[in-house]
Design a protein around this nucleic acid. Structure first.
Lengths: 134, 134
DNA sequence: AAAATAAAAGACAAAAAACTCTTTTATTTT
DNA sequence: AAAATAAAAGAGTTTTTTGTCTTTTATTTT
């Protein structure tokens, strides 16, 4: 999530950012991050180009995507559909004791993530990129 | 959580329930559960007595506790206080990009867990204890 | 075309979490 | 008091997650 915000911020103006820069920018191990970004790249959340002047970037289309796409790419859909207690049987027709309570909360999380686009953070981040460090 | 509901349900009438019974009742490995319950017992969420006719139980006081106490005993307080993105620096005065959004959601979760007591599930569970299996 | 750059991929290592097994201790029943 | 029962405790194993290192592939600049 933080790396995506970082890339979004740095490349809103069309350029690319290398993995070392991202790594130090968000204070996360380089090779570990690489793996995650490779995955996000395959899933189309971020884009990348190899070679000199290459790096990761995001275009207008990807910047317009909701945060829920990122969460889904990383954690899968179960956050939005699974049971709050992690029970397999639990469903709308066969609810667990906390089903309804969790449903309301989950819907709210989903709404929040669907209504916010990745690109929307760029203004906030101008207060200082440090804000993405741990 | 499921084991606590199970114990609550089985001992509302004053008797005790052994770990084998809980284990098969909620479909969870016996020794693994034992460890968890030992911890919950030390923290006062459930009570126990050794020897024949011993087992785990809960009295009126523990049944009246909110679910938030169980969550806190198992996962610690960070669920209620930590940053939604897991950032260390993030706080009320130095918020991360999603701070406010997460705060609202977290408050709702906390409210839900604080307003519901462990004992409240017993009626629901009379629809069939199977509901606590995976 | 050659050299340099940077991501992609895959194998590997370390740490954490989940789970199991064995022994000990406390309690009760006979 | 002895036998039986059941939780407590602790050591050990397996699996998953997190993180690292090395090699490969693609692209660009000179």
């Amino acid at each position: 999530m933080r790396s995506v915000f970082f890339i979004a911020h740095r490349t809103a103006s069309g350029n690319r950012v290398g993995i070392k820069e991202i790594s130090s920018g968000i204070d996360s191990p380089e090779h570990f991050l690489a793996k995650i970004l490779q995955d996000l790249s395959r899933k189309g959340i971020v884009q990348s180009i190899k070679g000199p002047n290459g790096g990761f970037y995001m275009d207008a289309t990807t910047l317009a995507r909701p945060l829920s796409d990122v969460v889904e790419a990383v954690d899968g859909k179960s956050l939005f559909t699974g049971c709050g207690l992690g029970l397999e049987y639990c469903s709308e027709t066969n609810p667990c004791p906390l089903h309804e309570e969790f449903k309301g909360i989950r819907n709210r999380i989903q709404q929040m993530l669907q209504q916010t686009t990745i690109g929307e953070f760029n203004e906030d981040l101008n207060l200082g990129i440090t804000k993405l460090k741990k």
